[in-house]
């Protein structure tokens, strides 16, 4: 657990560096999913840089593509990306754009960025893998805003109907849309109940507790004849007090003072 805290802090630091270097947006939605990504890439999923082409690898679809620095930072920490790759984030002639691109490779399975695409593609992967009697699983992470998209619900209906027990959806439920609280934009509650009504097995967890994350990932699938969904209660901007649950950090980049403050808090968050 302590190791996970340390990894998460390193990932948050890398994200901060990437975003400050490029004056980029979306640090808030990056920080809400860091702990989940660390849980997935360090134990939760069967993936490794040496097996990035293996047909038996688990697939990860990062549907909330706007939080790509979080994905890149975790892939970096897990050994998929080099320091040089990371330094090529969002620079002219660099490696990575603001949204993940499969054509770049390096562990990125699907290009995303337009919301509501990840779950249909992930469901297609899960369907094909089942046909091939593969043991590989498909993990899809979406933002709560993506649950406004009709295409997401088309796929939820499909996956439940076809009993895709090799499909795992993780909802980064930070309850903050791009212009305000989810509750005021389009209320998604009761969320787990909606999934259950669509024949999914749902668990609601604290998306920042490694104890909960690791335990939950270890018990997949939740039901032998259903797709699994983890409704992860998270905080936008988690890990830096002044960013937490503040919409500003969907868009703004920290200035020098804020950056130093954030660095201190990220370091302080790791118990010695």
């Amino acid at each position: 657990m302590r190791n996970n805290d340390r990894l998460a802090a390193q990932v948050r630091q890398t994200i901060l560096d990437m975003i400050c270097r490029t004056n980029g947006p979306h640090i808030g939605p990056c920080y809400s999913c860091v702990d989940l990504l660390v849980g997935l890439y360090f134990g939760g999923m069967n993936v490794s840089p040496s097996k990035s082409e293996s047909p038996n690898r688990d697939r990860f679809v990062f549907s909330k593509g706007h939080a790509s620095p979080a994905l890149y930072a975790v892939l970096h920490r897990r050994g998929f990306l080099t320091d040089k790759d990371v330094s090529g984030f969002a620079t002219n002639g660099g490696t990575f754009q603001q949204h993940p691109d499969r054509n770049v490779g390096k562990g990125i399975e699907v290009s995303t960025g337009s919301l509501g695409h990840g779950l249909p593609v992930g469901a297609g992967m899960a369907y094909a893998l089942k046909k091939d009697k593969s043991r590989a699983r498909v993990f899809v992470m979406i933002s709560d805003g993506e649950l406004d998209e009709g295409s997401t619900w088309e796929a939820i209906l499909f996956a439940g109907h076809h009993k895709l027990n090799n499909l795992v959806l993780i909802v980064d439920y930070n309850r903050m849309h791009a212009l305000g609280p989810s509750k005021k934009t389009l209320d998604l509650d009761p969320l787990a109940g909606k999934f259950r009504a669509f024949n999914w097995a749902a668990k609601v967890i604290d998306g920042h507790s490694f104890k909960a994350i690791n335990k939950t990932l270890a018990t997949l699938p939740f039901h032998k004849n259903m797709p699994s969904v983890i409704v992860a209660e998270t905080l936008k901007g988690k890990g830096v007090s002044f960013m937490e649950n503040d919409l500003r950090w969907h868009y703004c980049c920290p200035d020098e003072k804020e950056r130093a403050w954030a660095c201190r808090e990220i370091k302080a968050g790791v118990k010695p």
Partner: peptide, 25 residues
């Protein structure tokens, strides 16, 4: 086994097809 009626859901159909193609179909 090679036929799939996805229902009246064209966006999902295309997404599914892409996912299946990514797995070699």
């Amino acid at each position: 086994e090679q036929f799939l009626d996805v229902g009246v859901a064209e966006q999902n159909m295309i997404g599914l097809a892409a996912g299946m193609a990514l797995c070699g179909k």
